[in-house]
């Protein structure tokens, strides 16, 4: 399965300033969102992981969109990510 990840709102700064990441899991056809987030923390994140993950979920104040819609419509952290999903993370914590 392939997943596309987009980061914005300042969050990309923690990920090598890269806004788009494509990940492939050749041995799976779905993955719990929580595992994907922990995978991102352990493999893609470059600094200050506490600004991204708190208590095994995204830090409050970071919005998550699944295929362009609010993750809260899909059960939030308990969502199962599927092939070709796009997961978007937007920080709301940076200055306005």
């Amino acid at each position: 399965m392939k997943v596309k990840i987009e980061l914005s709102g300042g969050l990309e700064l923690l990920f090598d300033k890269k806004k788009v990441h494509e990940i492939e899991f050749s041995d799976k056809n779905e993955i719990p969102l929580k595992d994907l987030i922990l995978y991102m923390r352990d493999n893609l994140l470059k600094e200050r992981s506490e600004l991204f993950v708190v208590d095994d979920t995204v830090r409050p104040g970071i919005l998550v969109l699944i295929n362009d819609a609010d993750w809260e419509l899909f059960g939030g952290i308990s969502y199962n990510v599927e092939d070709k999903d796009t997961i978007i993370f937007i920080s709301t914590l940076h200055g306005g």
Partner: peptide, 8 residues
């Protein structure tokens, strides 16, 4: 949240 969603 809505401000950021609107901008998005």
């Amino acid at each position: 949240k809505e401000i950021v969603m609107y901008a998005y």
